[in-house]
Write a protein that binds this DNA or RNA. Structure first.
Lengths: 228, 228
DNA sequence: AAGTGGTCTAGACCACGAA
DNA sequence: TCGTGGTCTAGACCACTTA
């Protein structure tokens, strides 16, 4: 019997061997099903998954082609800090550094597309691994969208965990970049001023409305890794 | 009629509404198919995709559960530098800075799991956007695995493009981090020494054998972004 | 031993999009 | 117009896992 996995690796093999070069059109699903001696649904699943992986490009009527420039995609897991730290066998500790309710500063209003006069909750938190600074968290929560946040003190629970429990499914944009440590960051993370720090920024929407913006600055040397 | 997309969003809706809380077990596929009035294959596809997305966890016999801590995954596209630059409407230019064949240094042997005495091709390249430095590339190619690389001069073609054409499918590990600019980096990227730079490192294997290791250092301010 | 998901089949209808 | 992929169906057998 032919399984969709076999078809996938056979197709990859033919592309690698050069039988189907860049931009080549593959035979139709019906044709391939006949060749492999299986049902069209089986071929469909194999080709669909390869298209998801960025190897193939499919269009109705014109057929299935080998992507000239394969879309390389890496999937990164975004863990909760607590899990990340504990997964490394270290003891996790959370601390709230600052908590304030205020009118959204201009840069944040622009960034999150907030209404003028929008009120936000600003939180600064620290995450420690075995008593060493691990991550600095600078978070802003839109109170218009999530008024319940104002009643939380976040003294013991990290905002990420609370948010995850409150709005488990949301649209997220994440980006990675580097920044130099300013005086405050250096003090909190225990590094030299000017040190190169890796950070992630996340914007979250729920039901089309802006919920939260966070900058997570990692201690020096931190890296995120993925395989594909 | 009920489509697998409708089922997906209905399931998400019920989880969001709290009907199926964390760790809750969903009804079996057969049961759900009866409820939705569709075939089991349709339910299967919906639940399988939600499991791929990290929302559900499925196990034979024990059933489908809502993940307590949803696995957040972000998919980043890894473009060729040329495409990235041109996609921003800038003119792309490539330059080879250095090319040398040598015995692999110890740190690289360890990192790539190379044989003792392994020979490698070391390349340093620059990528420019509108004549401004865009990315610094420090690449090592294992000549044992890819002897053909020694015959290439890489004067006009960037190694990434050549590698992609030569071994289109390979296993890749990528990681992101930050580093401070040393004198050489600062000169090449036109930034101050000590500036915080974002970089990606990629290790590639083909057929289980190490092929290449590359560090791509971006100009100051660069970020990579993904949605999920 | 038994229930659950994993997969395949053979057939069907439909939507898109290039000619 | 009409060929291609997209999806659904009803049924089947199997593999895994837990009780």
């Amino acid at each position: 019997m032919t399984t969709f996995r076999q078809i996938k690796s056979d197709v990859i093999g033919r592309i690698t061997a050069g039988e189907w070069g860049p931009d080549a059109t593959l035979p139709s699903e019906t044709e391939l099903a006949a060749r492999y001696g299986c049902a069209r649904a089986t071929v469909n699943r194999a080709l669909r998954e390869l298209a998801d992986d960025g190897v193939l490009e499919r269009r109705r009527k014109s057929g299935t082609r080998v992507r000239a420039a394969p879309v390389r995609q890496a999937r990164f897991e975004i863990p909760l800090v607590r899990r990340e730290v504990e997964g490394q066998g270290a003891a996790y500790r959370y601390a709230l550094v600052e908590r304030a309710v205020m009118a959204a500063p201009d840069w944040l209003r622009a960034r999150m597309a907030l209404e003028p006069e929008a009120r936000v909750l600003h939180l600064v938190c620290m995450h420690y691994a075995n008593a060493s600074p691990y991550q600095y968290e600078d978070r802003w929560i839109a109170l218009d969208t999530l008024p319940a946040a104002e009643a939380e003190d976040f003294a013991a629970t990290a905002p990420t965990a609370w948010l995850l429990a409150t709005i488990p499914f949301s649209q997220v944009e994440i980006s990675f970049a580097a920044t130099e440590a300013d005086a405050a960051l250096a003090a909190h993370l225990g590094c030299a001023e000017g040190a190169a720090l890796f950070f992630a920024e996340r914007s979250t929407w729920f039901d089309g409305k802006p919920v939260t913006f966070v900058r997570l600055v990692h201690r020096p040397g931190h890296r995120v890794t993925a395989r594909y």
